[in-house]
Simulated scan of single mutants.
Amino acid sequence: MSNVIILLLTAVIVLSGCYHRKTFSGKRHIATTELTQEQQDSLNFVHTHHYSQNFNFIVKQDSIVLLKGQPEEIISNLPTDSIIVKKGERIAVAEIRMMSSDSTDSVWVQLARDQYTFGWTREKTLLQAVVPDDPISQFISTFSDTHILISLIIISIISMAYLLRKLFKNNANIVLFNDINTFYPTLLTLTVSASATFYSSIQLFAADIWQNFYFHPTLNPFSVTPILSIFLFSVWFMVILMVAVIDEVRKQLPFSDAILYLCSLCGICAICYIVFSITTLYYIGYPLLIAFYIYALRKFYNSSRAPFICGNCGELIRHKGKCPKCGAMNI
């Protein structure tokens, strides 16, 4: 059953590659050279700031203050009215102005909550208070928040410490420690670790590419740059692996043991993501990832793999000798 599901998912991903993005023709290239200065500035702004007029945001902070006066009036400290847009409300970019006279931030953005509610704010203030109106962007923003990461680290460590203690006490199956006879769970932890390392590497060495993906996200690995394509393929590979893991665990363990095993697997994957995504930002993640791969592969090969079958009951066994299930001797 798992093989059928994996093949179906793979086929869907491969077929989605039929999409072809049109490239600019020679005529189009010539036309761009005839743009006005204002149009060229607008294109340059989109390229460097990744959003433009009519782009939609959602307020993620408690509120954002928009000033009704013109930017020149605000910079000159003239009195002006203001409006407050609350958390969760949608706002759209109505106009963008470059104010070289503003030493704080030269980019001013006019935002509209509705056709009657307009106001200005600096770009720095705006980007700290909003998130693009896209569920993928909101997911990225949530898991990039420092406070949420710290809370997730604390909760994961406490929960996993309690769960692992209980599982070790009962000699239960745990990935990377006392695993079942399948490589899928180990491969999942290795994939999560490598993906987290690659994710942080993109932020380190290709920040502009990641910023553009944040404003214009997609789950199609065929419609992005090669770097992002590799990352998205790893995400889809994790989804496929998780389906295979659930199917294998269901076959090898009783229901209650399977639930505990999957919970511990999710916890370990969460810790791997947190550890490698953070340590890679300080370049420690690379040697740590190599060490983790060596440990995980050796552990599975030496302790978790069951290459033998009992000649009496057909149970998978890790070593020749007495079968733990029926007691028969296998020589």
Rank of each mutant, 00 (worst) to 15 (best):
T189H: 03
I153F: 12
N312Q: 14
D62T: 13
V107Q: 08
L164D: 02
Y162P: 00
I150H: 02
P217T: 07
E89T: 06
A129R: 06
V239M: 14
S63G: 01
K68H: 09
I6E: 08
S159P: 08
P217N: 03
K87D: 00
D247I: 02
L204R: 06
L176T: 10
F308C: 03
R298G: 07
V249H: 00
S256E: 12
A129P: 01
E315Q: 05
F57T: 02
E38D: 15
W108G: 12
V65L: 06
K87C: 09
L288I: 07
N220L: 07
G267C: 14
Q203N: 07
W120L: 08
K166S: 13
V224I: 09
E72H: 04
R165K: 10
Y214I: 13
K325Q: 14
I240V: 15
A161P: 03
I83E: 08
N54A: 15
F276D: 07
N212I: 03
S16H: 06
R165Y: 12
S193R: 04
L67H: 08
M329L: 13
Q138E: 10
S264E: 10
I75M: 03
K251M: 08
V224K: 03
H47L: 08
A306Y: 05
Q61H: 10
R318P: 00
F177Y: 11
F183P: 00
K299R: 14
C269I: 10
P132W: 06
F118V: 15
L288T: 01
N54I: 14
E72D: 15
V192F: 08
Y162A: 11
Q211K: 10
S25F: 03
I58W: 01
K299V: 09
A258L: 06
C326A: 12
E123W: 02
T121F: 02
V46A: 15
K27M: 09
S223H: 03
Y162I: 15
S63T: 15
I240H: 04
H147R: 13
S193W: 00
L35I: 02
I284W: 09
P132M: 06
S151H: 04
A92G: 06
D145N: 15
Q61T: 15
E34S: 14
S101K: 12
C326R: 11
Q110A: 10
F231Q: 05
I274M: 06
I5W: 03
S101M: 06
G285Q: 00
C323K: 06
Q203A: 09
S256V: 11
H147N: 15
G285Y: 02
H319P: 02
K325I: 10
F276P: 01
C323G: 10
I274Y: 07
I227R: 03
V235T: 05
V235L: 14
S229F: 00
Y286Q: 04
T218G: 01
S2K: 09
A206K: 03
Y273S: 13
K22I: 11
I5S: 13
I83V: 14
A112I: 10
A11P: 04
L163P: 05
R250N: 13
T33S: 11
S2A: 14
V192L: 07
K60S: 02
K60P: 05
G26M: 10
I6Q: 12
L232K: 07
V12A: 09
T280F: 04
I331R: 11
H319F: 12
